Simulated assay, not measured.
Amino acid sequence: MVRIWYMDDNLDDPQSEHIEREIDTQEMCDRTGVEYWYFHPDHLQSEHSSLEKLKNDRHYTYEDEIVVQPTMENYETKLKTFFKEHLHSDEEIRLVLEGSGYFDCRDYNDRWIRINVFPGDLIILPAGMYHRFIPDKNNFIRAKRFFVGEPIWVPINRPADDHPARKSYLEEKVVRYHNGNQTLAAGH
C-alpha cells in the first residue's frame, strides 16, 4: 500500500527515497488535490465492479498499460522525460499492477511530496498540478493508464503557470483561509 512523505532537497540519486517527514494519505490529498484508491491486487477481479464504477463516474473510456523497465526502448531518455517537472491539461490516472515507483507532486507551498506506489494503488493527479515520476530502485513498474477519450499524453514542462490547466488547478484546488497564512487544498 502507498507510502507518502515530504522529500529532502538532495537529488543526487532520484531513485532513492529522500524522506524528510512521512505523512498520511489524507494529508497528502488535502495538500495536493491528488485522489487515491486502493484495490487489493489479489482481489482486483472481484473488485472489478468498484473499479468499473470509478471509471464510469469519471468518464474514462480508454485504457492501456505501460511497463517501465530497463529493457524498454530509450529507457534512460524516457526516465529523464518522466522525471522532468511538468503538468498535463488532463488528469493523470495510474493503477499499479506490478512493481513500484515514485510520483512526486507539489503541495500548496510548492514543496515536493513523494508518493511511493505499489500494486493496487490507484492515484489521480489533477490536471494542472506540477509533478514527475521515477521508478524506485527496483526499476520496474507495470500500470494501467486511464483516459477520457483518446489518450493524450503531452507533458507541459515547468514553468507553465499561465497554462489554462494550471490556472484552473489553482483556482479549484487552493482555498485561502481568512487567517491569512494557512492555505489548504480543497476537493478530495
Rank of each mutant, 00 (worst) to 15 (best):
W5T: 11
D13I: 15
D13H: 15
D13N: 14
S16W: 07
E17F: 12
H18W: 05
I19F: 05
E20Q: 14
Q26R: 15
E27F: 06
M28I: 14
C29S: 10
C29G: 01
D30K: 10
Y36D: 06
Q45T: 13
S46T: 11
L51V: 14
E52W: 12
K53W: 11
R58H: 07
T61S: 15
V67C: 09
V68W: 03
T71N: 11
E73D: 08
E73K: 15
E76I: 06
E76M: 03
K78N: 09
L79D: 06
K80Y: 10
H88C: 03
I93D: 01
G99S: 06
G99N: 07
G99C: 03
S100V: 06
D107E: 01
R111P: 06
R111S: 11
I113C: 04
N116T: 12
P119R: 04
D121F: 00
G128T: 03
M129G: 05
H131T: 03
R132T: 06
I134H: 11
P135N: 13
P135M: 04
K137S: 12
A143W: 01
R145L: 04
F147M: 02
V148S: 15
G149Q: 03
W153C: 03
P155L: 03
I156L: 11
N157V: 12
N157F: 12
A160R: 04
L170S: 10
E172V: 13
G180R: 08
Q182V: 13
Q182S: 09
T183W: 14
T183F: 11
